[in-house]
Design a binder for these strands. Structure first.
Length: 670
RNA sequence: GCUGUUGUAGCUCAGUGGUAGAGCACGUCCUUGGUAAGGACGAGGUCGAGGGUUCAAAUCCCUCCAACAGCUCCA
């Protein structure tokens, strides 16, 4: 199969943005903000300090980044965090020396000579130790462009700047981490050491930065997940495989109920499909073998496996047989596409093909088969098939992260099959669902990205008229949403435009959730059709949508968004009754029974602890409502209400409390 | 996957060559206390796994496993 027919639709999150290969012009680079300028200078000062300590260091590049700066370099000594103190002390000295940053324009020949001698990116000439990376970087500078360098103290670096005037400005600096990187981000090139640091103009800002980091750490969903017993990841089960514990299951279930309710309102039909499907299904869809590397290996049935082993097949042979495609399927796919999408080299004779199953990496093929299980009339379109569908993908181990990057996850998935004229309305429907859900959760800070085709690129298939229509639909839908959106040409999937949701959490971090994608390709590959009003067969358009990406990821973001303080309707434990003494046990039992009968998730703490300890525990467990019951309440027949965030709310009647809380839950108040 | 760091009780961590510790949580008992920690006693660990060095390894070395950070923001 030569052409990837369907990209990994609705991947959990975006791949890292590939490094742009375009060079910035000198003018563009000069447009650094003040803080970037400061941090860039800090990178030079760090390089100076490292050279004083380890003169053999070869520097590559050291830019300012979002929260600080780094410099990549190569040397004998391996930096560890233990070295930071030493380097920082040296940097402090350099700052005190108040070295002037001086710009110098030099010729290509001068630059090369300085690099050859080891002077560029060094404190002095270093015979026998030429500045290899700088030499390479000089070669990358286009002919005719001004080559410039900056000098502070003895350190001269190839650098377009800009810089602060004097090193004295760089006082409030802290090194944060060390890691490895590849030269030019290319893993075939040299492996470098990278030291990260951050810098601010004042001590207060530097400290505030670390306070923010602490805040982020406190609300880390992995930490809260453990503390609040929401989920567990077990080595024996496997990396990236989530075990939802009872508390987390409640959170997820409530969220699913909410989304399902909205889907029903919008005319979706719920379906269920199995977790595996035959290989041929994914050969038809195009997911196999193109995404083989990011999928779990095929599952081969015992008898088939015994047979090929009996025939003496080695591993490579088995893989080849699994990956082959029948001549008939190839013919079908090529005919449907009207061009060669599967080349002949992938074909194996039928008696050599080895069939197997795959853990599904996406739900679309299954939903397509449901759509195609009966003749469809234009009268029943759009068909909207929704499923909280669990899929499995082989993410690299280093990519795994808590709930936000996992190997098995459940998408809030749906596939819409509609006529071309319906695309606009359906895309709009998808967006409004997202809006409702995010607003209900108080996540009002989000933006959408509309991925359009690049008209100059040939990678986008299909006819231009369809594209224009679909793009207009996406653009118009995004515009009516009333949230900021950006149009990004070239960012479309090759088979159709898409809309991505990026939400910003309370502390300003952005999270990419799901996408809505218009697809003209899969209906062709699966030869889908419906009968139009003209009594002729037509090709439906498919829309893939998983607006929240996956339940795992979304719950992870929610945990951090709320810092574990969920609104009552989502809270695993909504009310905890705290007794002051044994004297009110009977009264507490009665209240407990009443709340339970009202459908609240309530627990009763009759431990021998003092009330202060019980309150503390309930606060730590982030239970929204605490009912303090003592003799006073028993006598009055009321309850003392304490809210985890609002504190003591005083004595209320049980009826009043019940009415308020059940309404709060029913209306999903924040 | 690559680079680095880390892995000791359910949790947070101390312990750097001489056969394992604290706090919290847990269990039992005492205490019946009014809005963020009452007290006593007790139980709990083949120190991530495997191998090696050593008279002796949680500690040093190697391999593996896992977690965390980075590997993208371009002299």
């Amino acid at each position: 199969m030569s052409e990837p027919c369907t990209p990994p639709i609705l991947r959990q999150n975006a791949r890292p943005i590939p490094m742009s290969t375009e060079r910035k012009t000198l003018d563009q680079r000069a447009q650094m903000s003040d803080i970037e300028r400061l941090r860039h200078s800090c990178a030079h000062i760090m390089a100076t300090a490292i050279l004083r300590l380890w003169p053999d260091a070869q520097f590559a590049y050291g830019p300012p980044i979002e929260n600080g700066f780094y410099y990549d370099f190569q040397m004998q000594h391996r930096i560890t965090p233990d070295d930071f103190e030493k380097i920082e002390a040296e940097m402090k000295k350099i700052s005190k020396e108040n070295q002037k940053f001086e710009w110098k324009g030099i010729s290509r020949e001068e630059a090369k000579a300085m690099a050859e001698s080891g002077r560029l990116g060094g404190l002095s000439e270093r015979p026998g130790n030429p500045s290899i990376f700088k030499l390479d970087l000089i070669d990358k500078i286009p002919e005719g462009e001004q080559i410039s360098c900056f000098q502070n103290g003895d350190f001269i670096d190839l650098c377009a700047g800009p810089h602060v005037g004097y090193s004295g400005k760089c006082k409030h600096v802290k090194l944060t981490s060390v890691s490895a990187s590849f030269y030019m981000g290319d893993e075939t090139k040299a492996s470098l050491q990278r030291v990260y640091g951050t810098a601010f103009e004042s001590k207060e800002e530097l400290e505030a930065h670390f306070v923010r980091l602490e805040e982020a750490k406190k609300r880390d969903h992995r930490k809260l997940g453990k503390e609040l017993k929401l989920f567990h990841i077990d080595e024996d089960v496997g990396q990236g495989l989530i075990l939802w514990t009872p508390n987390g299951a409640i959170l997820r279930q409530e969220l699913q109920n909410f989304i399902s309710e909205e889907l029903r309102k919008q005319g979706y039909s719920q379906v269920f499909t199995p977790h595996i499907g035959k290989l041929a299904l994914y050969k038809t869809s195009g997911h196999f073998p193109y995404y083989k590397d990011s999928q779990f290996a095929a599952i081969v049935e015992n008898d088939d496996l015994a047979k090929v082993i009996h025939e003496g097949c080695g591993c490579g042979e088995v893989m080849a047989r699994l990956g082959g495609i029948s001549a008939k399927l190839r013919q079908q796919l090529n005919d449907r596409a009207g061009k060669e999408v599967v080349s002949e080299e992938n074909v194996l004779p039928d008696d050599q093909l080895l069939d197997g199953f795959m853990l599904k990496p996406m739900n679309c093929p299954h939903h397509i088969k449901i759509f195609d299980s009966q003749p469809r009339s234009y009268r029943e379109l759009p068909v909207r098939l929704a499923e909280f569908g669990t899929v499995y993908r082989w993410e690299q181990s280093g990519e795994l992260n808590g709930l936000t990057r996992v190997r098995g996850f459940t998408q809030d998935d749906a596939h819409l099959f509609c006529t071309e004229d319906q695309v606009a309305a359906e895309v709009l429907g998808c967006l409004s669902l997202v809006k409702i859900v995010l607003n209900t959760l108080g996540m009002t800070d989000y933006r959408v990205r509309v991925g359009l085709r690049d008209p100059d690129s040939s990678k986008f298939t299909g006819n231009p008229e369809q594209w224009d229509k679909a793009e207009d639909a996406c653009r118009a839908a995004a515009a009516t949403l009333g949230v900021p959106f950006t149009e990004e040409p070239g960012e479309a999937a090759f088979y159709g435009p898409k809309i991505d949701f990026v939400i910003k959490d309370v502390i300003g971090r952005e999270w990419q959730l799901g996408t809505v994608q218009v697809d003209y390709v899969l209906p062709v590959r699966f030869d889908l059709s419906y009968i139009g009003s003209d009594n002729k067969s037509h090709r439906p358009v498919m829309i893939h949508r998983a607006p929240f990406g996956s339940m795992e990821r979304f719950c992870g973001v929610l945990i951090e968004h709320f810092a574990g303080h969920f609104p009552t309707w989502l809270a695993p434990e909504q009310v905890r009754i705290l007794t002051i003494s044994e004297k009110v046990d009977t009264f507490a039992d009665e209240i407990f029974a009443q709340l339970k009968a009202a459908g609240l998730r309530v627990t009763l703490n009759q431990d021998a602890d003092k009330i202060g300890a019980k309150i503390r525990n309930a606060q730590l467990d982030k239970v929204p409502y605490m009912l303090v019951l003592g003799e006073k309440e028993a006598a009055a027949g009321g309850v003392s209400v304490r809210h985890a965030k609002r504190g003591d709310l005083g004595v209320r009647s049980i009826a009043e409390f019940l009415a308020d809380v059940t309404a709060e839950v029913r209306e999903r108040k924040m």
